[in-house]
Design a protein around this nucleic acid. Structure first.
Lengths: 213, 213
DNA sequence: CAGATTATCAAACGCTTGTTTGAAAGTAAA
DNA sequence: TTTACTTTCAAACAAGCGTTTGATAATCTG
């Protein structure tokens, strides 16, 4: 039964299944709400597997976090040859697709969003590895758009305004769906949302840039 | 020892203390994270008091919710004689003061914000009594600003953009404070934030109104 | 005052949680 | 095959949870 060639060892296979299940369950129920037993059940692993492989529930969360997709998105954007405004549009499109697409491996972002409401010790890692770089990336991008006249404080608030809009759709999803049952985050809808945020924000940014000159 | 004249009965006094403590603890730890024992400890009440007076932890949450402040804020705003844009500014100022002021009895809003991330059965009540009216109020206000040419969908997205910005500061507070330790939501800072959101959003709204004519 | 009702209390209940245990099974090298 | 090591497993553990209990105290009622 142990003749698999793909997976290195059975142990690593279990580890991987646990990580997958963990991302799923953590993103769905949050760190507190998620139970080790449920994660093990979905991973078809024994209840002691988490502690054996990751030391603790928290260790599992730490290893389950993976921001490579978010980092790649920013990297690609920086390398693109488009003008800053267009790059903001592109970023918002990709970011919202990652953030809202249900099928996507956006569990990372969902876990992140949950941590905001309910910080665990993993929040430090999330802030330094994902959120801070993201803010820095957006800050630079906006700086290219507004020029040098806008203060750092105002620029930071613009970053907040943009991220606030983005997070709203993920964060308030349960509420929005109750008030508007036909709401569905399909590909087309997500692109429309991203476009709205881009239009809305670029107008807001331009206004600030004008005001300060 | 029972010669208090202020409180109707000792029982009602206990109820009131429990409700106060509940708002405090729920807003601090969320519904899941809050424990009945901690609430009772802060209320100087016996561990069985919650079940005796409110039936269950969830019953306590239901009764602890109180949106009168939020409703009053909208009522006052509607009655004001200012132009729609100025009323939006005023609303944002009052709303952010309520949302961010630590001393304020903004626990209601904090509980609300927590429910968004982690819905409990009380979310239905919160949506119908607080969030839906709030969205409706903002929708009407924005409609006055943009006129009839903007579609319902676009208008709704503008409401989302504004609320998203507002919620961001409450919701991401733990993160923002880690990245910017000197951050403090004092009265002046809150007003500056509200003003930024107003400027940013009015520019975004104007842009959409222009585009659709 | 006497009796009925209401409120408080310490203690315990049943359940779920993350974690530990020690044996069994699997794996790898000699 | 023997030996040493790793991984899995069912079971149990201690701690914390919301809730219930039954006795005690306080309050109201007639």
């Amino acid at each position: 039964m142990m003749s698999e060639v793909e997976t290195r060892t059975a142990s690593e296979h279990t580890r991987a299944r646990l990580l997958d299940a963990a991302r799923e369950v953590f993103s769905q129920y949050g760190f507190q709400g998620a139970t080790v037993r449920e994660i093990c059940r979905r991973a078809d692993a024994n209840g002691a597997a988490v502690n054996y492989h990751f030391g603790s529930k928290e260790g599992l969360l730490t290893e389950a976090l993976n921001f490579s997709q978010l980092a790649a998105l920013q990297n690609d954007n920086v390398k693109s040859a488009d003008c800053p405004k267009e790059r903001l549009r592109l970023f918002l499109r990709d970011f919202m697709l990652m953030l809202l697409d249900e099928k996507n491996a956006s569990s990372q972002c969902r876990i992140m969003a949950r941590e905001l409401a309910d910080p665990t010790p993993a929040l430090d890692q999330i802030v330094s590895e994902a959120i801070a770089p993201l803010h820095k990336f957006l800050g630079k991008l906006l700086r290219e758009i507004v020029g040098d006249q806008v203060s750092e404080t105002e620029l930071r608030r613009c970053v907040y305004s943009i991220l606030g809009q983005c997070q709203f759709y993920r964060h308030s999803h349960p509420v929005l769906q109750r008030m508007n049952p036909k709401l569905r985050y399909d590909h087309k809808e997500i692109e429309a949302i991203a476009e709205h945020i881009a239009d809305f924000s670029l107008a807001g940014i331009r206004h600030l840039a004008k005001k300060s000159t």
